[in-house]
């Protein structure tokens, strides 16, 4: 799959922002006044910034509001609803904390649940696609949720929770890569089933339909950079999990905490790039490609 920057920025930043909102909604850290304002401002900047970025790849962003209509079947529509509801509930909760010195815990709890639901619905947009075996796995939502919660705990300064959550996310990441590498082969789809000619012998793509490229090849058959995938995996793993955990284990220091967040963000962004760049769509088979 083509790793569009808009989608990588969106899933990375929004995941982190909504993760932070989960912790703020549950009252960790228990902030109020201007400190609360700063925390909520960061969370909203990440969550809303990510959502804005996601509209950049649309052919007609001015019609994006229509995406709220099909929540009965579409995960993308459900994601839109969850995000808006999370931001509304958390906004009211923040209003109480920042300006009225009131803690409306129920609003925070509802907001936290919708924040989690937003991350889950985002992950389901990818998980539902049978056409991309590497995404069509139970581990995909687990990965999105574990990353979001680990990042949220890190941003919320909840060191004691952040370390185990980072370790869980690291484990999920390893499992996701291991299982994902076999997903296409074990999906049972090959050029034989794609053409229906598999029972007659081995099928080979002899001639493509056209000499140039097309939308399908640009969007679904992205092979550039796959050769560095192994190195990028190591880099992303070290940045997202190893360094932040080490920095958290050291005696607390604001510089270390900031470095841990920056490192985690860069690592998750790299992992997300791989999530798209390594994903293989079955339509590539028709072109004799993966």
């Amino acid at each position: 799959m083509h790793p569009a920057p808009s989608v990588i920025i969106f899933t990375t930043l929004s995941g982190l922002g909504f993760g932070l909102l989960v912790f703020l909604g549950l009252g960790f850290p228990a902030v109020s006044g201007w400190i609360a304002f700063v925390f909520f401002a960061i969370a909203y900047a990440l969550a809303v910034g990510g959502l804005m970025a996601s509209t950049f790849h649309l052919g007609h962003p001015e019609r994006a509001w229509k995406a709220f209509t099909q929540w009965k079947t579409s995960w993308l529509s459900r994601e839109g609803w969850c995000a808006v509801l999370a931001l509304i509930f958390m906004g009211l909760y923040a209003l109480g904390l920042v300006f009225l010195d009131q803690k409306w815990s129920l609003l925070g709890l509802i907001g936290a649940l919708f924040s989690l639901a937003t991350v889950f619905t985002t992950s389901m947009i990818y998980t539902q696609l049978k056409t991309i075996p590497r995404w069509n796995m139970n581990l995909t939502p687990v990965m999105f949720l574990s990353f979001s919660l680990a990042g949220g705990a890190l941003l919320a300064g909840q060191t004691s929770v952040a370390i185990p959550l980072l370790l869980i996310a690291a484990l999920v990441q390893i499992l996701y890569w291991r299982k994902g590498d076999q997903a296409f082969a074990s999906s049972g789809t090959d050029l034989g089933t794609a053409t229906g000619l598999g029972a007659r012998g081995s099928v080979r793509a002899f001639e493509p339909p056209h000499t140039g490229t097309n939308y399908l090849l640009r969007e679904f058959v992205y092979v550039v950079g796959r050769k560095h995938a192994e190195k990028l995996r190591i880099i992303s793993f070290v940045l997202a999990f190893v360094l932040p955990v080490l920095l958290l284990v050291l005696p607390f220091n604001h510089v270390f905490a900031l470095l841990a967040v920056a490192s985690h963000l860069a690592g998750v962004a790299t992992s997300r790039w791989l999530f798209f760049a390594q994903a293989e769509h079955v339509v590539g088979l028709y072109y004799g490609k993966r």
């Binding site: 790849h57 696609l129 056409t131 399908l216 339509v283």
Partner: peptide, 24 residues
């Protein structure tokens, strides 16, 4: 009504849908 998000093309195993680059 199409916003050109491309998700339908992602979900099609046959490559039957193409996002028009001029019209979006």
């Amino acid at each position: 009504d199409c916003i050109g998000c491309g998700l339908c093309a992602w979900s099609c195993p046959y490559g039957a849908r193409e996002l028009d680059q001029a019209e979006g």
